[in-house]
Design a protein around this nucleic acid. Sequence first.
DNA 1: TCCTGTGAACATTTTCACAGCA
DNA 2: TGCTGTGAAAATGTTCACAGGA
Lengths: 220, 220
Amino acid sequence: MVHGREHLRRIPESTIRRLPAYLRALENLKCLRTTSVGLGEATGYSSEQVRKDLAYFGAFGTRGVGYDVRDLGQQIRHILGLDQGVRAVLVGAGHLGTALVRYTQVSSGDVEFVAMLDNDPQVIGTTIGGIVVQDVRQMVSVVKEQTIRLAVLTVPARAAEEVAQDLAKAGIGAILNFAPVPILTDQHPPGSVLVQSIDLTLELQALAYFVSEHDVFSPA
Amino acid sequence: MVHGREHLRRIPESTIRRLPAYLRALENLKCLRTTSVGLGEATGYSSEQVRKDLAYFGAFGTRGVGYDVRDLGQQIRHILGLDQGVRAVLVGAGHLGTALVRYTQVSSGDVEFVAMLDNDPQVIGTTIGGIVVQDVRQMVSVVKEQTIRLAVLTVPARAAEEVAQDLAKAGIGAILNFAPVPILTDQHPPGSVLVQSIDLTLELQALAYFVSEHDVFSPA
DNA sequence: TCCTGTGAACATTTTCACAGCA
DNA sequence: TGCTGTGAAAATGTTCACAGGA
């Protein structure tokens, strides 16, 4: 017989990936209450999707009324673990890395970059967005000492795998990889480090398919 | 009765999104032939997935042997429409936009940025990565005259929706949106412009969930 | 024998439809 | 009555298992 955690049905990954969008929509709302329809319109998802996603974690709404904006925001922040504060490190302080750090400092609360690393002596020691760039050879100790759980990787493709393996050894929890190459494809055990890759080239090439009007089955 | 295009079963979107990864893997291969297992290892997908994806478009392999690297590359390039050349425009020549253009000039063939736009008089007229930044007010004519089908949007959130609507009016096919806000959520007709959003803040917040060890069901 | 191509089984995700509570 | 919460149905995507040609 089941007891305790009846709620612990597996949460779909796709649900988790939508929660931050709901959170942002709530933060942008001026009013005190909203509905699943309202949240759906603000995020581009369907109202059923919103209700189902939220219901995985409990009954946050009031039937006939809707959701309390402030309370639901706190709930989602708690679910995501943002209420604990999340520390991140950027590895590769080139143009892209610099832009990304500046960018998140403006728009994202709750996840904070606490360190930047590079291997270029010209860059090490400079301050970018209020953070002093350190030598990438310090990476393992920086990650361990500051208990950093998230890494954003903006190093050249040739360096990505080695850096990723070192991050794994340092005990990082997840890597957001911008290098145009798959990393950590054979982990032991698999999945101990979560890798999420964003690859501009691949995204653009996929979009090319959808905008091209040619016949795919005509001879190459 | 069905005749002609028997092959025109619907292609899964997820298949399309993997094709560029296969293409890159093929381009990095030194040898003349490979197999679905080889392509799987190079991309991180399963060999069954590779075979199924490719088989949607025809029989490109040879049983018992595998795939011809050069030929399969050409086939995928053709399927994606890359063999026609794809022109893209960047809107928002700030730090992030600049980094992205430089980045793709290095790593991505076949999709080419042919124009950059901004609204800052200080930036308009400057040359970035060999491209002269033009006034964003020229956008519609630039897109139409150069028959640009892809746009990358790196403008501030408050400007994103307006720019996106203008891009839609100009007849753009797809937008890769980096602004932290949903765009074109109510199109008429829906789906005439394909929108793909990449939102660093949302990605980081989602990863926060997977790396946090707290109990989601404990009180907030 | 080797590796592709593919129907069938399985898994996941989304949408539908409505019961149930304020 | 209005809007949430939720099983059931539908759609989508992945893995399995093997038939079949080189």
